[in-house]
């Protein structure tokens, strides 16, 4: 057994176990942590497949940033709040089963077609990757696609401003009449006639 295979057979079961654990855990925080385990193991797979850049991105972006955001949202919404299991739309459950079955079949077909495919590198793969995979990606990203790359950052600025504008409503001056109507303030009492 080569070193590659050894690493694979150590991390693949952990990845599967992490995924199953995520599905089965009742606690949302535990589920998120199981997902982190799974994402880390997948990152190792990328390293095995000679994609070091993807390995780093997977850990930094997915296992790091996105999972922290997940946890933030879970904490903000309340960890122990029970989920509403009623179905607002009828027929969602059978539909989900059918679609899941179709997805499994699709994956099976794709895997069947892919067997033997992965043993050979795509045409021109080595020429593109001659200075290393990360450098090849950088060349495409910052030369051919540098304007889309920059416009994406503009899009993120707009999204951030948009989110803040919508979420952060300026506190409106509340009039006394409104407070009275809401029962937060007692109506002005008439002065008791002094003896």
């Amino acid at each position: 057994m080569s070193a590659d295979q050894l690493v694979f057979w150590i991390f693949a079961p952990i990845a599967v176990a992490g995924a199953i654990g995520m599905l089965l855990s009742r606690n949302a925080v535990h589920a998120a942590l199981f997902l982190v385990v799974n994402l880390f193991c997948i990152a190792v797979m990328y390293l095995l497949l000679e994609a070091p850049f993807l390995f780093a991105v997977q850990i930094i972006v997915y296992a790091g940033a996105i999972m922290v955001l997940f946890l933030f949202v879970i904490m903000l919404l309340g960890v122990d709040r029970g989920d509403d299991l009623r179905e607002p739309l009828i027929g969602q459950r059978p539909l989900a089963v059918i679609l899941a079955a179709a997805f499994v079949v699709e994956i099976a077909v794709a895997v069947r077609a892919g067997i033997g495919f992965a043993t050979m590198a795509p045409e021109g793969f080595d020429a593109v990757n001659r200075d290393g995979n990360a450098r090849a990606l950088a060349r495409v990203l910052f030369r051919e696609y540098f304007l889309p790359f920059e416009v994406t950052s503009l899009l993120l600025i707009v999204a951030a401003v948009a989110a803040m504008v919508l979420a952060h409503r300026r506190a409106r001056a509340v009039t006394q009449a409104e407070l009275e109507r809401l029962g937060l303030l007692e109506p002005p009492r008439e002065e008791a006639p002094s003896p």
Binding site: Y145, L147, P148, V151, T152, L154, L155, V158, A159, V161, A162, V165, L166
Partner: peptide, 22 residues
């Protein structure tokens, strides 16, 4: 480039969604 078309479409749409609800 269709990618730039898409990104520009998103920039203008996002801004307009917020301007509408401002």
């Amino acid at each position: 480039d269709l990618i730039v078309v898409f990104l520009a479409l998103e920039v203008l749409s996002l801004s307009l969604y917020v301007l509408t609800g401002l």
